[in-house]
Simulated scan of single mutants.
Amino acid sequence: MLRDDPLFYVVVAAVLGVLVILMIGIGGFAKGGEFNRRHANRIMRYRIIGQAVAIALILLFVWLRRGMI
């Protein structure tokens, strides 16, 4: 069961982390102004790194659990 697997919770945390970063980026873009000018590129880089980590964790999870069904 997925609830018994700690790696599942790590994957969920990584995906939620990407969602938070995305929402901060969208909020900054919508608001515009100084915050967006100063931080937009940095937030985009954090999102891309977070997505790469989340995808790697998802692939690891699928690879490790593929024969356990």
Rank of each mutant, 00 (worst) to 15 (best):
M1Q: 04
M1V: 06
L2F: 13
R3D: 14
R3L: 14
D4Y: 02
D5E: 11
D5L: 09
P6S: 12
P6M: 11
L7F: 14
L7E: 13
L7D: 08
L7S: 03
L7N: 06
L7P: 09
L7H: 15
F8I: 06
Y9C: 10
V10E: 08
V10A: 07
V10H: 03
V10L: 13
V11I: 15
V11T: 12
V11N: 02
V12G: 07
A13V: 04
A14V: 00
L16P: 05
L16N: 08
L16C: 13
L16K: 14
G17L: 12
G17T: 10
G17R: 13
V18N: 01
L19K: 09
L19W: 08
L19R: 10
V20H: 07
V20P: 10
V20C: 11
I21M: 14
I21D: 15
I21E: 12
L22V: 10
M23R: 12
M23E: 08
I24V: 14
I24R: 11
I26Y: 09
I26H: 04
G27P: 04
G27E: 03
G27N: 06
G28Y: 01
G28T: 08
F29S: 07
F29T: 04
A30W: 10
A30V: 13
K31L: 01
K31P: 00
K31I: 01
G32M: 02
G32Y: 06
G32H: 04
G33M: 03
G33A: 00
G33I: 01
E34C: 01
E34M: 02
R37N: 08
R37T: 03
R38G: 02
R38W: 04
H39L: 00
H39P: 00
H39K: 00
A40N: 06
A40S: 07
A40C: 03
A40V: 02
A40Q: 09
N41I: 07
N41S: 07
N41R: 13
R42Q: 00
R42W: 01
R42E: 02
I43H: 03
M44A: 10
M44C: 10
R45D: 08
R47A: 08
I48L: 09
I48Q: 09
I49E: 02
I49L: 05
I49M: 00
I49P: 03
G50R: 07
A52G: 09
A52C: 08
V53D: 05
V53C: 10
A54C: 02
I55V: 15
I55D: 09
A56H: 01
A56F: 11
L57N: 07
I58T: 10
I58Y: 00
L59Y: 14
L59W: 15
L59D: 15
L59F: 13
L60A: 14
F61Y: 12
F61V: 03
F61G: 03
V62H: 03
V62R: 11
V62A: 15
W63T: 13
W63R: 14
W63Q: 15
L64D: 14
R65D: 09
R66I: 15
R66T: 12
R66N: 15
G67M: 12
G67K: 11
G67S: 13
M68P: 00
M68A: 11
M68R: 09
I69G: 14
